[in-house]
């Protein structure tokens, strides 16, 4: 796991700092008795994950993470916490606390075991700089006369590159969404509409029942 994909000491340091912030905030989320503080820690954890995405050359996903998770989901959960306001015994842990802790530790141990004991041979082959010539380094899209545009590699200078698998991946996400992934994309739109209508029905259903009862009375 070295060579073409090394990103230098600064990126590694930034990765560890972001990971530390993320994991510390996550521990606060699951242990904090005050739910409002837990929501703030959750937002902090989302920001840390966004930083990890930026370090891993996934700029678009990092921006989406901040917009959707920090900007929407955290606010939604904070809204729910403040709306319901049943904070008296919010921090109560269930009686299966020991079982939960053991499950979490076992899960982490097995993930670490698998991560370090799996032979990522196929990945190592791809990590060979010759194999990924064109991916490491600078490339530019040239207009094709017909059909697909081709991407010309401007240089394979590993030292000069950002060392990412894709130097500029964000600009290819839009075309991918409407070409290779168009069917999942449209299905996703259907799912979002169904989820929103479902949420409205669940929220409003009882109010309509009450109104009908009021009319009957």
């Amino acid at each position: 796991m070295s060579g073409a994909f090394d990103s230098g000491p600064i990126a590694t340091l930034a990765f560890f700092v972001a990971s530390a912030i993320t994991i510390a905030s996550a521990i606060i989320v699951v242990t904090q008795r005050d739910l409002v503080r837990a929501v703030v820690a959750l937002a902090m954890s989302f920001v840390g994950v966004a930083a990890i995405y930026f370090i891993l050359n996934a700029e678009f996903i990092g921006v989406v993470q901040i917009l959707v998770y920090v900007g929407a989901i955290s606010i939604l959960i904070a809204f729910a916490v403040m709306f319901i306001g049943d904070l008296a015994n919010a921090g109560t842990l269930s009686q299966s606390r020991l079982v939960s802790a053991v499950s979490g530790v076992l899960m982490l141990a097995s993930i670490i075991f698998v991560a370090y004991n799996t032979d990522w041979t196929a990945i190592d082959e791809v990590n060979d700089p010759d194999a990924v010539a064109g991916l490491v380094g600078h490339y530019e899209v040239t207009g094709g006369s017909g059909g697909e545009n081709s991407i010309v590699v401007a240089g394979n200078d590993v030292e000069d590159s950002r060392g990412g698998a894709l130097v500029d991946g964000s600009s290819h996400i839009g075309p991918a969404l409407i070409r290779e992934f168009v069917l999942p994309f449209e299905t996703l739109g259907l799912l979002l509409i169904a989820a929103l209508i479902g949420a409205l029905v669940v929220i409003r259903g009882r109010q309509e029942d009450d109104a009908q009862e009021d009319d009957a009375a």
Binding site: M1, S2, D6, S7, A11, T12, F15, S19, T22, I23, A26, I27, V29, V30, L35, A38, S45, V49, I52, I55, L56, I77, A80, V81, I84, D86, N89, A90, G91, T92, L93, S94, S96, R97, V99, S100, A101, S103, G104, V105, M107, L108, I111, I112, V114, A115, Y116, W120, I123
Partner: peptide
């Protein structure tokens, strides 16, 4: 920064979340 380290961080997040799902009693916390 290697794939293994990234997987360990991801696994730590997942495990902490798993603990929270099992241990918390408040639905919003879950």
């Amino acid at each position: 920064m290697t794939l293994e380290i990234v997987l360990v961080v991801a696994g730590a997040l997942f495990s902490i979340g798993l603990f929270g799902v099992l241990a918390r009693r408040n639905i919003i916390a879950v």
